[in-house]
Design a binder for these strands. Sequence first.
DNA 1: TGGCTGACTTTCG
DNA 2: ACGAAAGCCAGCC
Length: 110
Amino acid sequence: MAKQGFFEMVYEVAKLIPSGRVTSYGAIANYLGSKGSARMVGWAMNASHNMPEVPAHRVVNRSGLLTGKHHFDARNPMQERLETEGVEIIDNQIQHFDTLFWDPIIELEL
DNA sequence: TGGCTGACTTTCG
DNA sequence: ACGAAAGCCAGCC
């Protein structure tokens, strides 16, 4: 296994997020071992535009707020995609976020 | 090479 | 309780 870039790792984790579930930047960063670089996870998501298979819409901030929706394609609203997956969202805020939260550290359990 | 950036998170005021 | 500032680290110019 060649040493992958940080972005690749973020993509891998993002792809593992089940439909109808969401996670946070910090959770992914923590899973990667760099809890301080949560911003970078979002930044990696920004680069994920080249990777349509990466469900960046399932990644939100720790409050369950769709902070990165502004970076999404206006014709493919992040909220609409999540709602299609069964996630209830009100005012960019994911409802039942605690229940829908998918933590790679816990779910993947290493 | 050095420095800036960034879709976050946490803590101090 | 709310607002502002610092911290973090890897990619990019």
